[in-house]
């Protein structure tokens, strides 16, 4: 391209975004990093540098709790990601068919994304209410019942379900776009070689969807490892810490009178590092896979 703009012009164009980005994202995160090495506890005049003590405490005194939180987070993220993506692909294939009302289906399936966490949390709390909620009324038809979100075995599966309910529409839309990007010629060529039905899906569609699958999985993993507000409203981390994800654990530390805010900040940084490690691993794996395929 012929350069007709001044060299500072592109910088000026991104400057506003950059400034907002640094002020509202980078600077607070750096601030958290700073506080994580202090014994700051709300009293801004009296706090001192403690180095890595908060991290050491997290990995010694609270080791069991931290490991539990990581375990819960990984379970939550794993199942959310797997279910969301399988159902997402399936729904995308279905609403990509030439059927009547496909746009209506698409809109409805995407709708939960419009609702806020508070609302989703409240709605499902009510549905899973063991006393007056519809879920137990259905269960009682089969002669059984459960305390649902209060049951330490069921709580996590329910929270996973609600998370999937919320975001499966988003995954569907991304896959739908991927499907629409695949040229029809490929399928026609494939059908000559006998690739129809499941076979064409397995050997043509899926490999071609690979990049979108990658993006989707990454987004699901990050989203589900970060989540805490939905859980705060649904179970508040209980029962028996069955839904105490890392995000929830960090949030809860603020309540614990023993931990300082400095300590909570340290946990926040640990949370970030855990996600970063997972993202790097997943991305490396997927890049290799893509390279293999191509």
């Amino acid at each position: 391209m012929v350069k007709t703009y001044r060299s500072w012009a592109p910088w000026m164009a991104i400057l506003p975004a950059l400034i907002l980005f640094f002020i509202f994202k980078i600077y607070p995160a750096l601030g958290t990093l700073f506080f994580s090495m202090t014994d700051f506890n709300g009293n801004i005049d009296h706090f001192k540098w403690v180095g890595l003590k908060n991290y050491k405490n997290a990995l010694t005194i609270n080791f069991d709790d931290l490991m539990n939180a990581i375990k819960v987070s990984f379970t939550f993220a794993f199942f959310t990601t797997v279910i969301q993506n399988i159902v997402g692909v399936a729904l995308a294939v279905l609403v990509n068919l030439k059927i009547r009302g496909k746009n209506v289906y698409r809109s409805i399936l995407f709708m939960p994304n419009v609702l806020g966490v508070v609302i989703i949390g409240l709605v499902w709390t009510l549905i899973f209410d063991p006393y007056s909620g519809p879920m137990n009324q259905i269960l009682s038809l089969f002669g059984t019942s459960s305390s649902m979100l209060g049951d330490s075995k069921l709580a996590l599966p329910i929270v996973i379900f609600v998370q999937v309910w919320t975001s499966v529409g988003y995954a569907m839309i991304l896959y739908l776009a991927g499907l629409q990007g695949i040229s029809q010629d490929i399928y026609e060529a494939g059908s000559v070689d006998g690739a129809v039905g499941w076979k064409s899906f397995r050997y043509l569609t899926l490999p071609l969807l690979q990049p979108i699958i990658g993006i989707n999985i990454l987004l699901s993993i990050i989203g589900s490892l970060r989540v805490f507000d939905l859980i705060m409203i649904l179970t508040n981390g209980g029962p028996d810490e069955a839904t105490m994800t890392l995000g929830m654990f960090v949030f809860k530390t603020i309540f614990d009178s023993s931990g300082t805010q400095g300590y909570a900040s340290a946990l926040g940084i640990i949370h970030f590092l855990v996600i970063a490690v997972v993202v790097v691993i997943v991305q490396t794996y997927m890049r290799r896979r893509e390279e293999k395929l191509s």
Partner: peptide
């Protein structure tokens, strides 16, 4: 930044 920690106090 998709998963940077928040820093409310700063």
């Amino acid at each position: 930044t998709l998963f940077l920690p928040d820093g409310i106090v700063p």
